[in-house]
Amino acid sequence: MTFGWLITRYMYPCFLPMGEWYRTPMDKNGAILKIDLADFQPTQHLDIDPTHHVIVNGLYMPHTVIRHNERLAYCDSMAYRVEIEKNAPIQLQGFTRGLAMTDDTIFIGQSRMRHVLRIPHAFSNCCLDGGIHVYNSTYRISRFVSLPAQQVYQILVLDQDFSLERGGN
């Protein structure tokens, strides 16, 4: 099972073992790969052995790899965490997926766990609310913005030049 992100010349797929991975939800066997696409052409065929490209392993269920200010950041979803290179993990209370950063704020998506029987036994509670944690890492404080939705997949910070004018011509 793969999920992929492309950052400049590198693709950072997140990987879980193929097959019925959900039968062993306590296993931390997720990984993040790094694949150099500098010479890749879309018309070519490239077989990838994930084991040759692992840069982070031992994860519960990784999602949403991004880079900000030269630091790698990602969600370790089933550990309810966000990991940012060289920083202490940001520990939350629910399934994390969707991550965006600005210079002063980190936006972290939280989703309802679809299958409560897969909730890791290591935690005494799993928050099922869907929404966005607005986290200030300088002061280590956060607010939560609920969404009228159960799931968050991705968060994009809109550039100033992406129009928001709606309606009319």
Binding site: G98, T102, L147, Q151, Y153, I155, V157
Partner: peptide
């Protein structure tokens, strides 16, 4: 948090 001015797009899968 009143310093915030960001605009976010958030995608949500059906469930």
């Amino acid at each position: 948090f009143q310093y915030l001015t960001s605009r976010l797009l958030v995608s949500s899968p059906a469930s």
